[in-house]
Design a protein around this nucleic acid. Sequence first.
RNA 1: GCCGGGGUGGCGAAAUUGGCAGACGCCCAGGACUUAGGAUCCUGUGCUCGUUGAGAGCGUGCGGGUUCAAGUCCCGCCUCCGGCACCA
Length: 900
Amino acid sequence: MEQKVIDQPTTRPTDHPTPKYIPQDFEAGWMQRWEADELYKTAPADERPKAYILDFFPYPSGDGLSVGHCRNYVPTDVMSRYYRMKGYNVLHPMGWDAFGLPAENAAIKTKTNPAKLIAQYSANYKRQFRLIGISFDWSREINSSTPEYYRWTQWVFLQLYEAWYDPRADAARPIAELEKELGEKGTAAIDAAQGIEGNFPRLSAAQWNAFNKRERSEFLSNFRLAYRKPARVNWCPVDKTVLANEEVHDGRCWRCGSQVIEKNLPQWFFRITAYSERLINDLDTIDWPEHIKLMQRNWIGKSIGAEADFKTGAGYLRIFTTRPDTLWGATFMVLAPEHPFVETLTTAEHKARVNQYVKEASAKTDIERETEGKDKTGVFTGAYATNPVNGERIPIWVADYVMMGYGTGAIMSVPAHDQRDFEFARKFHLPIRVVIRPEGESNEIHSLDADTMERAYPHEGVMVNSGPFDGTPADVAVEQVTQWLEEKGIGAKRINYKFRDWGISRQRYWGTPIPIIHTDDGEVAADHDALPVELPNVNSYEPTATGESPLATIPEWVNVTLPDGTHARRETDTMGTFACSSWYYMRFADPRNEHAPFDAKEVNYWCPVDTYVGGAEHAVMHLLYARFWTKALYDLGYVNFIEPFERLRNQGMILSPQVKDGKYEKMSKSKGNVITPDEMVSQYGADALRAYEMFISEFSQATPWQIDGLAGTFRWLKRVWDLMLAPNERPAANETTAQADRVLNRKLHQTIHKVESDIEAFAFNTVISALMEFTNVMYDLQNQVSREMFDHARETLLLVLAPIAPFMTEELWMRWGSKYSIHQQKYPQYDSAAAAEESFTLVVQVNGKVRGKIELPVGVSEAEAKQKAFDDPNVKKWMEGKNIAQVVYVPGRLMNVVVT
RNA sequence: GCCGGGGUGGCGAAAUUGGCAGACGCCCAGGACUUAGGAUCCUGUGCUCGUUGAGAGCGUGCGGGUUCAAGUCCCGCCUCCGGCACCA
């Protein structure tokens, strides 16, 4: 390692002109050599500290990579190369999220097998990655659409299928343990842990034991972490498949942009909601951008409140509220149109109108309800409910602003303190009663008058008109009322979450087959030894008109004969691709394992991922699902980590340099403004491209591509090149070079330090500016420093530059005759003593304005600094004839003299 | 509407805990070298005033405030970008 090149004659190419920097001459050759030498092959788990640096699993598209995509691949590569030089065992792999609609739709369009397309597209990506010098360990490449991979996606599916969430353990457990418990105790013990209501039917041990196979199977669906149920789902009529809630944006398909409609279909789900609380809480343990954490919290949408029962003619009507302190202000009830009580409660007199309303509401999709604005509609059922807190009789209405999918599908309406209820009450002339007085107003209720108020007062305050609770202050009102409800047996504390279970069924060909078989006795899991359930080869991938998967049209695949000779049908839905990407980071730890998804030692050594980088668009999809799978596999004992991604960073978008309407446009194929790394490399070389990708701006910020900026980093590298190949005929170190040597050495160590801390902090743009500064200082001092210092500085610059410009630094390293490869050298050691400054500039202000700057030695006394400052002629001028009121002295920085 | 994140020269952008605003790069201008320069090197480059010089005033979206000192903290707005959107 210590091969000093200082005295080697190869550093003095005096007899021939300095070769020009022509990156295209050597870049491709070096990449080949590194791969042939397996320079970037990752070792298995060992004693070294590890660094797992991962980019989001890309879907390989036919368009290839743009310079925008390189925005994250380059910095993570720099970081990987940096940690390798620092002695870490680095895992920096790449693979393909190859299932899914884009490939399938392209396959249909071009009548090509999607696997073939993926092979083509990924080969092109790989070519581009090599072109720009990304140091992936290709021996670990994975492709989620191969049986070798999806076999284990199916395996995870079955783990979830064969598990349930036990609220008492607050963890997933094997379903067999639940079956045993049901046979002994029924659901009694689980009930108790669930609070006033769980999401499943009650059952005694006797009932369970009397169940036949099919009944048991159906009952267990209420518990399994992977389960099937009929559901109203988002259906994309163009892609002809189901979309998860997260995949619907503004009522449109996130992929093709067409209007989503609703359909009723039996669907497979993962019970992610069981993990709501843990998914929220564990966010506190990971280093992610706050806005991503916030988006996840909002998506999960936790609300703490209470449930309460209102007596009606059809039985107790249960409502959920976050404001139990407003119970005395309820003046009517509202049911969602789909609520089961609508049918039973509505009086004969109102039947016709209510039926009509419900019919219209169900015909409308959520999107239509939304586009119609927030104008409240609804009808009276003719029925009444009794408010359990004061015995009051209040009317029950039906309205579509209450949704069946949240809470209990029924609400108590408190128009004085809820804006939606307020609007409804005003429209239908329902009474409004104030029960919360804004705090800090002495004027009591007059400040909120039911007849004249123009909007609800939804905030907190002191309770009034609330019987025993009058005068209760805001901070304890909710809690005290909730407790009181529990004591009286009227209601109980309840936590609700907005988000729903993760729907994974897709009625398409190109996905992981769901390894389930439907028998006469209900569904059964495919045999673990029979995995993978392979996708059959087909000639046509067209989705069916009926909404069934194309797999359903292949009888020889669908129909199976069980060991006992009975016939059964395979599940024909496939899994959405988020299943594949929910565990791929684990597979990279041990990608060729044929006996298990991964070896426990390898996965627990490499995971969690230390640094995970990708776009912010996956905030609530992939990033939430992957966290869920990790926790489930943790609960079931397969991995020993709870969160998959320790540190997450999002790269900003690279925009087109073209300005339209005063704004930079996004790059897109349709706008024809995509800039590719291929063009840039052919013009400036990969190293300049890499440096510019880092330099362009702060990593997370959107910014336009500027070709002149790339030309700037090219020019800088050319300057470095020339400097490195310049002959060194300087004198040996002596008294005349001592000063310049010290200055250059100081800058050198400051640069090492800056580059190290900035790479680790994701401040890549300032890494480049620091290296540019160092280069400039070397140019400034090159004729004053000694031969030894000059070469030491050159070698150091080359080494710290190696992760950023791998090609050029290797080429120069070899031209210097140093030992191959520069990428296997140790990173230069930072010396804080050498980096320490000898003097500093003291800024002297008079009344906050800069009036002088003086150079002082580090460690100067305050008295001496003051003396020197006051001697400065300009400072003197501004102080003349004034009284010094105060002198603020910040050692090493600034002095502010306040005069009057 | 609600929640988040931004707004700094002609352009991309820097700026620990409040402590020289504009590092670094681009563009532009001047000079050197040169047959030539669109290569390279050097110098200058926030705006305004000041003939030069020394210097002065202004300046981080807008308006206030706190402070010896504000891009940074507080209050009120404008605007752009993301997310959520009748969630009881």
